[in-house]
Structures are given as structure tokens and as C-alpha cells.
Amino acid sequence: MRLAYFPGCVALDSCRELDIATRLVAEEVGIELVELEDAGCCGAGNLQEYNPEAALALNARTLSMAEDLGLDVLTVCGTCQLYLSRANVALRDPETRERVNRLLARLGRRYGGGVRVKHFLQVLLEDVGPRRLAAHVRRPLGNLPVAAFYGCHLLRAPGAAEDAEDPRAIERLVEVLGGTPVTYSRRTACCGFHVLTVRQDVAVKMSALGLQEARGAGAQALATPCPLCHLVLDAYQHKASRAVGEPLNLPVLHVSQLVGLSFGFDPARLGLRRHLVSVKPFVRALEDTEVVKA
């Protein structure tokens, strides 16, 4: 299987470990990633606010690059998934597409509307499938309790396979990898990333409530499909602890890293050392329960 890989901005910058882990996992399950190296930012809502037409055109450009390759787009970020697929839906309207294509024509580009946009989580569960995934699990998660943190944008993206009020994808994945999914109500809550620079107090409090509830429900780690959620939940967790007046100490893993761990990849290769909240206790617990499959 080949996909046009759109890493987005943050997975190539402060969350580089996500890009690294995704590449390792993709290779292991036989997905060839053709990176859209020259694709621009999805706009993340900011460009959409500044100039909606420019945001639509920039995303149409990205989609046209994948279309030229004859491939669907792969994202690893909730926000990229939302804004690229929103653009894709808007461009289904022939009039809108013609209007945007007049802009793209200046670059010698055209978008025909024939590309799908998929997040890695969806590809793992739907295209690779639980059975093939399980076949790659060499170090099952030893029934360790892992809680999901979905992030809003993945759930609200048009065409999302999941029920936004009661998603199951990450929980299903955790089970396939040999862990125990922990359910709690704030697994679909907002991390606050998009107001992190403007209203840090609000963002930190929002993520703190989620972390606190997950920990109270017994989670030993959180798994998230979004680098923006990861930034707030991991890098700002010390502030979250202060906001709720108790140490939260909950390691936050990118979904790709969790899969990589269960595949038996070396934690250092998955970039776990880059996290601000130490993942060591989780990895140690994993090693204690270790049942390496032949």
C-alpha cells in the first residue's frame, strides 16, 4: 500500500518523534510513504480566519499533489485531518472547485476532487486491519491500562469513521496491541491547544481536567493521535499539575509510538526520550510483564 504522506508542521518540528515513529511503524506493516515534501501548512484555522479562500486554495494545492501521484493523503495530526478533509468536502462542489482551480492554474496545477484524506489511526485499523496488526505485535502491552485522548479535530473531521461522542478506535487498537483500554468521559475532550498562546490558563486547565480524570480511572499512559494534543498534554503537564494542585505524572504517547512499542521497537528509536513527562515507568512496567512472542 502506498500513501501520500502529509506530516504537517508540528510532526516535523517540536514533535519530530511522531514522524520518526510513524515511518518505522508504516515500514513494518508494509505501507510505503511518499512524502509530500513541498506541501504547505493546512492553515490550522488561523489561515482560515485570516483568509478562507487562501486556506482553501493552499489545501487544494496539497490535494492536487497527491492526486498527481494517484495516491490518497495520509495525515498524523487531528488538525491537519480536519482542515484538509474540510477543504476536500468544499471542493466536491463543482463551482467551488472551478473557482479554486482558476487560482491553482496559475501554478500549473489542477485538482479533480479524486483524493481521500485519512489519518494514520484509521489506516492502521481499517486498511492494515486488526489481524495483520496483531501479527506484528512482538511485545504485547501486557494488559497495561492505557487511556485514549482523541482530540476534537480528528473526531469532527468530515468523513470520520468514529462516533464523535463515543469513539472506539484507540480503545480497539490498545486491545489489539495487548493493553487494557481505560474508558473515561474526557477522552473526547478538548486539549486547548488552539488557545495555548492566547489563553494559556484556559488551555492548561482544559488539558489538566482530562489528565486528572484519566489518571483517576487508573491509566498508566495516555495515547493520542494528535501532535497538538501531545504538546499540551506532555510539555505543559507540569503546569496542569499546578492547576489542579496534584502531580499528574501521566506519560503521553503518540499512537504511532504505542504501536511501535508493541512491535518491539527500541523505546529510544521511537523518540520516547524527547518527552517531558518521563515514559520510563511505563516502559519498565512493560518490561516487567514482558512476554516476547517468538
Binding site: D13, G40, N46
Partner: peptide
């Protein structure tokens, strides 16, 4: 200010310079 910085960053580099 944040929105403008974000858009400027896209104009300058194509992607965000965090």
C-alpha cells in the same frame, strides 16, 4: 497577533516555524 504571526510564518516558509 497570534493569527498574524501564524499567517506570516506560512508566507515565509510554507510551513509553520513554531
Amino acid at each position: 497577533r497570534h493569527a498574524r504571526a501564524f499567517v506570516e510564518s506560512i508566507r515565509d516558509g510554507g510551513r509553520i516555524h513554531e
